[in-house]
């Protein structure tokens, strides 16, 4: 209980994020489900920020962790870039059919 009171603003933040996340996609036409899923997938690639923070705080002699961290960043960036590019490609197709 104390834990929640001490972190009250975080709890509010999380609750509002959930509400907004639900609300923002509540009225999607089925035709856009695939691009939307792909776009949301790209956004979850924000995990790459974590990999960056991790790599910046790892001592340069700690090779194992540097390697693992680099792999993490590579995977995260692939998720971000691939996700946005593929969404773009799908949407470009919708546009060309005027």
């Amino acid at each position: 209980m104390n834990f929640i009171l001490e972190n009250l603003s975080e709890v509010y933040f999380i609750c509002f994020c959930i509400l907004i996340g639900v609300e923002v996609i509540a009225n999607v036409p089925a035709i856009l489900h695939t691009p939307l899923m792909s776009g949301a997938n790209a956004i979850s690639g924000i995990i790459a920020v974590g990999a960056i923070i991790l790599l910046l705080q790892t001592p340069p002699t700690d090779y194992l962790n540097l390697a693992l961290g680099s792999l993490a960043l590579l995977l995260g960036t692939t998720n971000v870039a691939g996700g946005f590019f593929v969404t773009h490609r799908m949407l470009a197709m919708f546009n060309s059919k005027k």
Partner: peptide
């Protein structure tokens, strides 16, 4: 990260 993750999770 927190907001992005939660929004994607909820959506």
């Amino acid at each position: 990260m927190l907001a992005g993750g939660i929004i994607v999770g909820a959506a």
